[in-house]
Amino acid sequence: MVNIISAGQPTEEAKYEQFMKRIEAGEKIEAEDWMPENYRMTLIKLISMHGISEIMGALPEKEWVPKAPTLKRKLGIMAKVQDEMGHGQLLLRVTEDLMKPLGKTREDILQDLLSGRLKFHNVFHMETKSWGDAGLIGWLVDGAAIITQTNMLDASYGPYARALKRICAEEVFHAQHGEAIILALAEGTKEQRAMVQDALNRWWEALLMFFGPGDAATTGTSKQDTTIKYRIRTKTNEELRQDFFTKYIPRVLSLGLELPDEEMYFDKEDGLWKYQQPDWSKFKEIIQNKGPKSNERLRLREIAYSNNKWVIDALQH
């Protein structure tokens, strides 16, 4: 049979097949390459959310930057939060290239954030109450971020994979910065130790939620299957959460801290940590921007936007 189409333009199906073959062979897709619409939209959603989460994620820690208790800590946390903003910038650049064919820009991303169409990561809606939280975010939230991001280091989309390489390298420093704060507190006075334990207790549920629900039953939808199919990530949310426990539970215990979940244990038979589920109804609230600090943090970005609009206008002059 003669394939009359092959002489001219390949069909969408043929392009799709070719595309899937490429990513299954481990090839990287670049910004200018053909890609299925669903792949492009999945990436835009994922990377714009990641980028904007880095930027919104600067805000909870930033609350402690001017208050850091020594000159060394002031310098350390300033550099750390600056890195987060830098990651945000890098990721928004990657998203901008993907959005170009749709005629959208960074302005649209920021507008989507302010209107609530674009969500930021659930962990950054939580409240901070003490310097212990500043340490804990650096140590365990960044630790959790390293685990999810390492899972995508070999993502099929080349520009994202390359950005993640750089980000992960810096996140390792952040986790060390956070761990140093926590160590100083854990080895300090009774009050300082209590500060760490209190931070851990308050952040525990947020850390469990960090990786997202185990399946779509919780929120009705889940992008896990799509991102795995497109070779953007390899592991499921639950596998990542288990990796986090395996890496960090021994460290938490070695500092003399108590696990906030008394019933938690490692089941040697199936090789899995057994733990109490967080309240997933809270998670659903948070991802609708109804978390404890959602509005305050969005308000800060809104002020930064509206208050400096004259500056942006002047730059376009």
Binding site: M78, A79, Q82, M85, N307, N308, L315
Partner: peptide
């Protein structure tokens, strides 16, 4: 300067200003 973190006119400036403050 550290109070400005996250509030600068654009993200690139946030990064640069923070570097100067450090």
């Amino acid at each position: 300067g550290s109070e400005w973190l996250g509030l600068a006119p654009h993200i690139e400036e946030d990064v640069a200003f923070s570097s100067i403050s450090q």
